[in-house]
């Protein structure tokens, strides 16, 4: 029986850190399932534990109560079946674009490696920059390389930790479209942490809303609209208002776009 791949189940998960000898609860009783091929965003104010939750799924955080399962198996440490794009592109400055993308591809032989790298350079639209160093790239380009690097291992799940947070508004909108295109091509589960409500609605099948101290899930909202989505459509604006209400922010606030 082939099971669907790229399913993460979080069950009754709680996590505390010790700060100044006092335990500080970061996540409390989290229950959520990320289904195969879904695009899910996690939004919430700073300190709600969304990045910690992502790091648990990545396998960088252990020592929690409850369960985190990947395709039915408990998550133990990082693995190549989960790719990650960090907010800082985290490209290695001493490697070229090609070498950065090939960073985790040691299992492949030379020819396969070359093929996979050029395929992914094409996927993220960076043809012509194969031999550039990270310092020569703009923020958006660097983040594309980071996405290509994360996808090159063919993960079942791509985790994105505020991947577009460091980009300017226009590049950001453009990169959201790119992410959608890549997600549709790759057909894998993508889980993205973001501060940006518009971005979450534009990209996601499902938005998980968290609040802080301790981090709990307030609500999970399905976004059933067809794609590509129109940010100016009434259904878009309606659901945005609904999400903002969760944060006790009316749409009249000018900073409602970025919580």
């Amino acid at each position: 029986m082939s099971k669907l791949k790229g399913v993460i189940e979080i069950r009754n998960l709680s996590k505390s850190f010790v700060v100044d000898n006092d335990p500080l609860q970061i996540l409390k009783n989290i229950n959520v399932t990320f289904s195969s091929g879904e695009f899910v965003s996690i939004i919430g104010s700073s300190g709600c534990g969304k990045t910690t939750l992502l790091r648990i799924m990545l396998g960088l955080e252990s020592d929690y109560e409850g369960e985190a399962l990947l395709d039915g198996e408990p998550i133990v440490g990082p693995g190549l079946n989960r790719g990650i794009v960090f907010q800082d592109h985290r490209l290695l400055p001493w490697l070229t674009v090609t070498e950065n993308i090939a960073f985790g591809l040691d299992k492949l032989d030379r020819k396969e490696k070359k093929h996979v790298v050029s395929e992914h350079i094409k996927l993220v639209g960076l043809n012509g920059f194969e031999h550039a160093y990270p310092s020569q790239l703009s923020g958006g380009m660097a983040q594309r390389v980071a996405i290509a690097r994360a996808l090159a291992n063919r993960p079942e799940i791509l985790l994105l930790d505020e991947p577009l947070g460091a980009l300017d508004a226009l590049t950001r909108i453009h990169m959201q479209k790119e992410l959608e295109r890549i997600w549709q091509l790759e057909k894998i589960t993508m889980i993205m942490v973001t501060h940006d409500v518009d971005e979450a609605i534009y990209l996601s099948d499902k938005v998980v809303i968290m609040s802080s101290r301790p981090g709990v899930i307030n609500k999970i909202i399905d976004i059933p609209f067809s794609r590509p989505r129109d940010r100016a459509s009434s259904e878009f604006i309606h659901i945005k208002a609904q999400i903002l209400k969760e944060f006790h922010l009316g749409t009249e606030y000018p900073f409602a776009y970025a919580i």
Binding site: L60, L80, R82, F86, R90, L92, F103, G104
Partner: peptide, 21 residues
């Protein structure tokens, strides 16, 4: 430490971690 994290995510350990990162 971000680079070390990246290396960990890609399964780099031991000599490979030292030599490549």
């Amino acid at each position: 430490k971000e680079y070390l994290e990246l290396a960990a995510v890609n399964g780099f350990k031991g000599l490979k971690l030292i030599r490549r990162v």
